[in-house]
Design a binder for these strands. Structure first.
Lengths: 195, 195
DNA sequence: TATCCTGATGCGTTATTTTGTATCGATGAA
DNA sequence: TTCATCGATACAAAATAACGCATCAGGATA
């Protein structure tokens, strides 16, 4: 007895993970317990409506009621508009790579102080992390990160960072462009199949 | 401890009433009890997420998760597109008047048999009932209905019905036109005011 | 290595929902 | 009037959500 809410709950989990919010952090913001959230997310318990609303609000989401007929329209609106900022997908093996990369940047900022380039890298990583990347694209990201890691302590760190920032930015732009023109392959959002 | 779900629940109630579905009918469709639904709608009880989903599905509604930033867009989409068909508002004193009018038409159809004019009147009434009418507009509707009631048994019933159908149609058209061009005054949908 | 944080899990208790059944007053229809 | 249906309400019983706290293993960090 659940499965109707599966999709909704899965979405909140994806958003939570994509935003880098832990269950404990969310539990404080939402006023629930961590164990509670864990059980909800893992499907061992069905939340009350108000509990669920608390969760979604804490994630900057709104629960909205939409006439069935308009669901596709709303869905495409959310997908299209949210693409350059959201585009949820998590639990991928790539996630670790991104997390590692972001830590690396943070570390460098701590060492050298913030720079426009590091900021750009950080922001672009955050974007790329949420987008579904093709294999080649992911390969490129991997190489760039590897280079950044290699030169992190070198005295060429600054120019290298600039170059990497530019490359990442270029990748981001190409993806953002693709996002509004092409139809998009397959998604994790929606998941709407009625009985 | 509720108030977050107030708006959502209120919407389901409005949709239910606007669709002319009784709590009992809904309870069967949704697999819940009538007493349960009554308590939910009157705010005496907070439904579980799955119960609420059952209710909404039975009303041809979908619960969707929308990034806060996109709420206005989705809202306008729902409002605009749903206008000529939904535009929920209920519990108004006008409702009784409309219900009475629709019964009158049904009665006349039963007496004289269905006619294109009566059908048009019926359909137009159903539309007008869901739209928020200005005072003058409601006044016009009242007069037309009164005239229909007065001549329901007369031998002029047929031509009168035709005239009334035309007048109602005209009103409907003007409202439908207004609906897509002007911004709309004040609505019951949305009701989104965060704490 | 030791430390910290993540999410998952267990358990006892309380609070609340949900069901089921039954009734009520109001309202409209025959 | 009589009859049906509407929504609201009552009450007991069963189910379950929610809390609180404590613990666990995994992974990353230092």
């Amino acid at each position: 007895m659940s499965y109707q809410s599966e999709s909704l709950i899965a979405q909140t989990r994806e958003v939570r993970e994509a935003s880098g919010v832990s269950q404990r952090a969310l539990s404080e913001r939402a006023g629930l317990t961590q164990s509670h959230i864990s059980q909800i997310e893992s499907g061992k318990m069905e939340p009350g409506l108000s509990s669920f609303i608390d969760m979604t609000r804490a994630l900057d989401l709104e629960l909205m009621l939409v006439p069935k007929r308009l669901v596709p329209a709303v869905l495409s609106l959310v997908k299209a508009q949210a693409a350059p900022d959201m585009h949820i997908h998590a639990g991928q093996p790539n996630d670790k790579r991104f997390a590692r990369a972001e830590r690396l940047v943070k570390k460098m900022k701590h060492l050298y102080g913030s720079s426009a380039d590091l900021d750009r890298i950080e922001e672009t990583l955050r974007f790329l992390r949420r987008v579904s990347l093709g294999d080649q694209e992911m390969q490129l990201v991997r190489e760039l990160i590897a280079r950044l890691e290699r030169y992190q302590a070198s005295d060429q760190a600054a120019p290298i960072a600039r170059e990497i920032a530019q490359n990442l930015q270029r990748l981001r732009n190409s993806i953002a462009h693709r996002a509004i023109s092409e139809p998009r392959p397959a998604y994790s959002l929606d998941g709407d199949d009625d009985a």
